[in-house]
Design a protein around this nucleic acid. Structure first.
Length: 488
RNA sequence: CGGGCUGUGGCGCAGUUUGGUAGCGCACCUGCUUUGGGAGCAGGGGGUCGCCGGUUCAAAUCCGGCCAGCCCGACCA
């Protein structure tokens, strides 16, 4: 009966473990063109859950969704010099269309600052038009040398926000608001991933930005992953695209801008921040399926008990989502937060393993023996803890456990981040500590030169923080701390 | 673009040294027995062996050319 484990263990080979999880949890697979990916239904359901949460927060921050074209005139990109320099190595360029060579090549958007700002210049005339707060959900293309599913693909899905403000202060405030109220809040409270919200060093800043903010997370192998960014663009684009308005005194002034984004890379971050040797672990608040009621073996009253339990869960809205009934041929309920697994033609062990690989937060084992005893076996994915619970108490117990699991996952990840972060005072020490996790070192000790020498050893400055871990407003603040580490 | 490797059913691989007409595991289909931690047995379907050319009675195997992909470096949400 004992089989070799379905996945490579994390300690044996972390990258291999990652690929195993992506494949066996049916999240994604490689597309036919190098660097592209097919996002499978379960992976896409996770992305949709992320979208829903992020989108709600973006709207709460006052931005509206819109959509801009995927094709951008080459000349637009060339208007901002740092911007085009930063992106030109990875552009996909369309030179032919309709069987003819195009008069001007069209760039497939690597990001949409330029094309959106071309519209902004038409939309903004008066101070009354400001702030202008726009977001779009789209795909973008950056031709990557070394792609990795979810983490670095040539085409990826994301959201990009673009805003125009009357003053620099207003733009700065908004960039920070997005970072904390949208990204950080989502990551901490939904993904259960603690993040460092800081300022990028000049070397790591976005091409065309005057300042870049970011949320950095630590993966279980101690490496860093940038989960989201928020930039202050100053007037770099508004000057080039002539986005100006008449102020209250009738003077013509250029706007101050921000842009910010998060992508399908977060799915990779989710896998690597919480996953264990049994597979993915999805936090309850994000999980497309929160509970699987697993019929161990059919028998007297088992199916009825499972259905009753499901009804109780949805009727009480305990799980928090309206149940969409959609039976498929296999008799499971795929489009639901609660799923009955009655596929008893497949062995119990196989089904248990499959749900674990997918990281479903709670499994309830229900068999003839349990029904006779009037219990269900509640199994937590994060701890593997099994508890027999009387059937009538199960809905409340499940609800409580989902909440506890959400908190525990964040607590565990926070502890891991703390345990793998060390205080250092010298460059040598920081380089060494960064092999196992994050190292904190005074930015004035490190400096731009120190940053360059770290880069030679595969270590980079992930972000700059104040001593109390809050986000600095500018690079000029005294006593900034650089957090350095190896990054994806 | 520099260095290493690999192309054989859906996936992972053996076979290539020494040419003889394609095999294994997983997955899939059918049936029976199973089901409390990746089930067992029996039967079955599926591959012009990356592409083009050459040598030969005969090429997955030998020779020449081309193409693609993977891993390690520089770039990156």
């Amino acid at each position: 009966m004992a089989k070799s484990p379905p996945l490579t263990s994390q300690t044996e080979d972390f990258p291999r473990w990652y690929q195993d999880v992506v494949a066996k949890a049916e999240l994604a697979e490689n597309g036919p063109v190098r660097g592209t990916m097919v996002i499978r239904p379960y992976g896409y359901a996770i992305w949709e859950a992320m979208q829903q949460e992020v989108d709600a927060r973006i709207k709460a921050a006052g931005a509206q969704n819109a959509y801009f074209p995927m094709f951008i005139p080459m000349s637009y990109l060339e208007k901002e010099s740092a911007h085009v320099e930063g992106f030109s190595p990875e552009l996909a360029i369309v030179t032919h269309g309709g069987g003819k060579e195009l008069e001007e090549p069209a760039v497939v958007r690597p990001t949409s600052e330029t094309i959106i700002n071309a519209s902004f210049s038409k939309w903004v005339q008066s101070y009354r038009d400001l702030p202008l707060l726009i977001n779009q959900w789209s795909n973008v293309v950056r031709w990557e040398m070394r792609p990795r599913v979810f983490l670095r693909t040539s085409e990826f899905l994301w959201q990009e926000g673009h805003t125009a403000h009357a003053t620099q202060a207003d733009a700065a405030t908004y960039a920070l608001r997005i970072l904390t109220d949208v990204y950080q809040d989502f990551m901490v409270n939904v993904l259960a991933i603690p993040v460092l919200s800081g300022l990028k060093s000049p070397a790591e800043s976005f091409p065309g930005a005057i300042r870049s903010l970011c949320c950095e997370a630590m993966m279980r192998d101690g490496k860093a992953l940038q989960m989201a960014t928020s930039h202050e663009l100053g007037q770099n684009f508004s000057r080039m695209f002539d986005i100006s308005y008449s102020d209250q005194d009738g003077k013509l002034v250029n706007v101050w801008q921000t842009s910010w984004g998060c992508s399908t890379r977060m799915v990779g971050g989710l896998i690597m921040a919480h996953g264990d040797d049994k597979g993915l672990v999805v936090p309850p608040k994000l999980a497309p399926t929160q509970v699987v009621i697993q019929i161990v073996r059919d028998g007297e009253g088992v199916t009825e008990a499972a259905e009753a339990l499901k009804r109780n869960l949805t009727d009480d809205q305990i799980v928090g989502q309206i149940d969409v009934q959609k039976d498929d041929q296999r008799g499971t309920v795929e489009a639901s937060k609660i799923l009955i697994d009655n596929k008893t033609s497949v062995s119990f062990g196989r089904r248990s393993t499959d749900w674990e690989i997918k990281g479903i937060p709670i499994r309830v084992e229900l068999g003839p023996r349990d029904v006779e005893e009037g219990v269900g076996i509640l199994v937590r994915r994060d701890t593997s803890e099994k508890t027999p619970v009387p059937l009538q108490e199960l809905p409340q117990k499940i609800s409580a456990t989902l909440q506890i699991q959400q908190q525990d996952m964040l607590a565990k990840a926070s502890m891991r981040l703390e345990d793998h972060t060390s205080q250092t005072t010298t460059l040598e020490e920081a380089t060494e500590q960064a092999q196992e996790g994050f190292a904190r070192i005074p930015w004035k000790t490190l400096g731009v030169d120190g940053e360059a020498s770290l880069a030679a050893k595969g270590v980079s400055v992930r972000c700059l923080l104040r001593e109390d871990n809050t986000t600095p407003a500018t690079l000029d603040e005294p006593n900034l701390i650089a957090v350095v580490g190896r990054a994806y």
